[in-house]
């Protein structure tokens, strides 16, 4: 029972959220024609032990996409931000 503090909704049970993948990888711009860039974006992932930036969506709440920094070794949530604010 992880608790995630949603910037919009407050502290909520993690079962209201849905994991959305690695947020440390920057999406190529929409116009980027580079197959290499898209290939790296879609397929290449690190698997770090320790702090990890990842997308979560508050599907059972505000539906906001969040960027959560989570320690993968003990699941401690180190920070939560709205995804749009991190750019």
């Amino acid at each position: 029972m992880l608790a995630i503090t949603c910037p919009n909704c407050g502290e909520r049970n993690s079962n209201e959220f849905r994991y959305g993948g690695d947020a440390s990888i920057v999406r190529p711009s929409h116009e980027d024609p580079s197959e290499e860039a898209w290939f790296r974006y879609v397929y290449i992932r690190d698997n770090p032990k320790g702090p990890h930036r990842e997308y979560w969506q508050h599907v059972g709440g505000c539906r906001g996409w969040l960027i959560i920094e989570r320690n993968t070794s003990n699941h401690v949530v180190l920070g939560v931000r709205r995804a749009g604010e991190c750019r």
């Binding site: 849905r18 999406r27 929409h30 969506q57 996409w65 995804a83």
Partner: peptide, 17 residues
């Protein structure tokens, strides 16, 4: 339906804010 909705929200909020 649910996956498409999430995908559209992802694009709107993170890729093309």
């Amino acid at each position: 339906a649910a996956d498409v909705q999430s995908w559209m929200e992802f694009l709107a909020q993170t890729a093309w804010p």
